[in-house]
Design a protein around this nucleic acid. Sequence first.
DNA 1: TTGAAAGCGCTAACAC
DNA 2: GTGTTAGCGCTTTCAA
Lengths: 342, 342
Amino acid sequence: VSQTSIRDVAERAGVAVSSVSRVLSGHRDASPAMRRKVMAAVDELGYVPDILAQSMRLRSTKSIGFVVGDISNPLIAEITLGAETTLQHSHYSLLLTNSEDQPELDASHIRLLLQRRVDGLLLSLTSETHPSTLSVLGEVGVPVVLIDRELPGTVEVQASTVLVDHKSGMRDAVSHLLDLGHRRVGLILGSSLRFAREREAGLQSAYAARKLQNASMVLCGPLDRGFAETATAAMLDDADPATAIVCGANQLLPGTLSELRRRKMRVGRDISLVSCDEQPLTELFDPPISVIRKSNFEIGVRSADLLLRRLKEPERPPETVTVPVEFVPTESCAPPGPARNS
Amino acid sequence: VSQTSIRDVAERAGVAVSSVSRVLSGHRDASPAMRRKVMAAVDELGYVPDILAQSMRLRSTKSIGFVVGDISNPLIAEITLGAETTLQHSHYSLLLTNSEDQPELDASHIRLLLQRRVDGLLLSLTSETHPSTLSVLGEVGVPVVLIDRELPGTVEVQASTVLVDHKSGMRDAVSHLLDLGHRRVGLILGSSLRFAREREAGLQSAYAARKLQNASMVLCGPLDRGFAETATAAMLDDADPATAIVCGANQLLPGTLSELRRRKMRVGRDISLVSCDEQPLTELFDPPISVIRKSNFEIGVRSADLLLRRLKEPERPPETVTVPVEFVPTESCAPPGPARNS
DNA sequence: TTGAAAGCGCTAACAC
DNA sequence: GTGTTAGCGCTTTCAA
C-alpha cells in the first residue's frame, strides 16, 4: 500500500499539492470541482497519506504509549483491551511495551515512547518508587494516566489516575469472614504496589469496624505460586492457625489451592477461601471460590477516557477516578470448623 | 524530554548538523575531538533524537504492527508477551490493534498500520478467508508473519508462518481416550480457524490409526460459554451419549464444566474430559483436567524471530515453523463407566 | 574530516 | 479558491 505521495496526486489531478492537502483534510476552502479532481486522482492512484509525515508536520503522532509490567497477566490483558478499544475509536494507536516486571525498564520504556513522540502515556508501572521512573515522569511533556498506582507524595507528577477500590472489596470480604465467626484471617500478599497496600488496609479496617482485636496474619512475598504455597503452609502450621485464607492476587491462588490439596483440606469446610480477582474458572470449583472482583475492561476504558480528555483539552487539570470492586461470597466461605480445635 | 533538535546541539557545539548526525550515528568519519564536542553538547542539552524524523529519512520506523482478535484472551496475551519481548531486544516497538473478533477490522487495521509505515506485520487474524483481508495482504509491501493461520491456497501471500501442531496433540488425546475404551468421543469446536480444523483432523486420525469406525460427535458453534453448555448437553442427551468430551478451546471449558456440574456428573468417573490449552487453574481441579498444551510464549518468540529474520534479509524467502503441542493426561480421563449403560 | 544543502511527505502561511 | 514556498528534524550526498 501507498508508495505514491501527495505530489503524485497533485500532478495527476493537475493541481497544487496544497489543494490536495486541503481537500483531504476537509478544509473548507476547496471548490466542488477541485474536490472531484483530487478525489479522482486519489482513487486512481490508490493514494494513502503517510501518517509519519503528517505527524512530523502536525507534531502529533496520534499514538499512545502503554507501559505494562506483564501483558500475559490476564488482568492487564483485559485492561489493555479496554484501553485499546477506546483509543481506537478516537483514532489513536497503541504502542505497547512490557517491563517484564523489572522496575528499571519502566523508565527506559517511557523514554523510548517519548522519543517516538507519543501524544500521551498510559502507565501500569512495575514500581511506584523507582527513582529513574519518578525522575523521567517529572519531565514528560505529555499527558499521563497512572493505572492503579500512587506515587510518593513528594514527587509532584502531573498525572490523571484511575484507582481501584481494592480496600472496600477486601473490607467486605473480611467482614463476611468475621461475621461467619473467623478471627484468624490469613492474607497472602505479593508485591507492595498500591493494590497490596489497599488490600491490607481493607483487612485492617474490617477488624476495626467490628471493634475486634486484629488477629489477622498477613504474609508478604514474591508474587508467585511458590510463595503462595509457602505462605499457605505457614498459615496452617502456625500455633494459632488461620481458619480463612485470602489470596491477595490471582497469581497466588494456584499455590494456595495446591497446598490445600496436598493437605487434603476441603475448601468451605476445613478452611475458608477468598481470592482477589475473578479468573475464568474460579466459579467452577466445587464449591465455587469467593472472589473480590472488578471490571478490568472498565479500568482500561476509563484510563483511555481520562487520557483522551486531556488530549482534547490540554489545559484541563489531571483527574482521578475510582473504579468499584465487588465481593462475591460463595460456599468457599463457611463458619470456622472443628479443624480449628485440632 | 527532548524539545531540543539536532540544530541546537550543532549550534551549542559550534559544528554543523551533519557532524552531530555523524557522531550520533556512529559514523567512522568523526574525529575524537569532534566526538567530544558533540557529546558534551548533547549531554548539556539532554538531547534525544526524534525517532519520527529519523524514520522519515530512513524510511524505517523500527516498529511492528500486531493485529490480534482479542488481546484479553490469555493465549493471545502470552503470544504478545513473547513477541514484544523479542522485538524489544532488537529495538523494535510494537503497535497493537484489536479486531474484537470482527473480520472486517483485520483489514482496516492492517491498512492503518501500513499507513503508520510499520516495518513488518504480525498477524493473528480473526478470519482466514475475509476478502478484504486477503486483498490487502496481496499488496502489503512489508514482511508478514501469520500466527497459526493458513490462507486459502488461491491467494499467494508472501508470508512467513508459525504453525501450531494442534493435530498431533489432539490425536494423542483422542488415542488415549480410545485406548481407555471410549468409542463415542465428543469434540466441541468454536470457530473454523486453523486450530479448529486441525483439532478435528487430529480426532479423525486417532480413530483411523486404530482402524476404529469413527463414532465421534463433533459440534461446532460460537466460541463461547453458552455454546459449550448447549453442546455438552447435546452430547450427553444423545441417543448414543458421549462418554468423553474434548473442549476445543479455552473459552469453552467453563460452559462444559458448568453443564456437567448442573447434571452432577463427576469428571473422571461419569465422564472423561480433556481441554485444549492449559489455563492457570485446570491443574488444580479435582481431579486435575487433562490438557493439550503448548507454549504460547514460544509462539510469540518464534513469530517475532521469523519477522526479524526477513527484516534483516529482505531477499530471504518466507519460512514456516511448527510449534509442538503436548497432551498431558490426568485422572480426568478414565475408562467409560457404568453411566454409559444407563 | 567537516560543512552546506537537498529532500523524505506533509501542512500552513502567504500571495495571487 | 488556488498555487508557491518554507519548513517539521533528520540523514546523506557532494564539495571543500
